[in-house]
Amino acid sequence: MKWPAIGYLRASSLDDIWRARAEHGDAAQLLAGGQTLLATLAFRLSEPKVLVDITRVAALRGVRVEGGVLRIGSLTRHAELGRDPLVAQHAPLLARAVPLIAHPAIRNRGTIGGSLAYADPAAELPACVVALGARIVALSPQGERRIAAEDFFTGLLSTALTAEEVIAAVEVPLATPASRSVILEVARRSGDYAMAGLAACIGMEGARATSARLVFFGVGSGPVLAARAGAALAGRTLDAAAIAAAQAALNEDLDPPGDMHGPPEMKRHLARVLLQRAIATTHPATEAAA
């Protein structure tokens, strides 16, 4: 369907954004890559009165290492994330996530800030930033604040952002030689949203895991940090017994809703399979054997 009649404002600066919001209030909707928002307009799932195009706001751009973290500007497009050398070096999980996001033409437009702000429970990047222990930098006319990624996602398509705020950047702790990260998903067709997915960051010391952040997507109302399963792996050699313990712990970590793909028990099954596959990928002994 064609888009409805709508207004358009091109913001060149943060001040332009604040002005547009002051004038139009809730009727104004920020537009970044538009790969979700513009599709929802076609379906009349959202009906903003004015689109505020923020893609030319330089303050929201750029990828750099600053103060011991990797700072990724919110307007960084998925394709840019996938080819950025700093991302590959310091946050390889994000680079690995990119090929799983939709299709090349969409990855050339969609942005990390847009994906996080929309907070689709089956999207890859929200799960990744929680797994990485990243912080979301939220800006408003009052200044900026940092929100831990795991506190940022508050429910279905909901975030901790206030109506005054815009995501400026994501700050990711730098990967270390001991950290392993992996993202896996099961989808019916390439590029579809996942039926279930897992973004995992595991700290390793030899064959032993020192920590494990396992974040599932497509199995809840947002990214789901499987704390019990992670605790079941921490401090242990990642052998079959450890994997079985973590899989068992998933029963309490996850409470997946049924959806068009299948019932909750199918999602639980997929989560167990993904957990086993993820550990096979990150385990150094397995890598050496492969």
Binding site: R10, L31, G34, Q35, L38, L51, A105, I106, R109
Partner: peptide, 20 residues
């Protein structure tokens, strides 16, 4: 599918107004 600034995009998910 068309190219904008050298990269392929979905033309139906791009506002003409944004292409100045």
């Amino acid at each position: 599918t068309v190219r904008v600034d050298g990269e392929i995009v979905r033309g139906c998910l791009v506002l003409a107004a944004s292409l100045d």
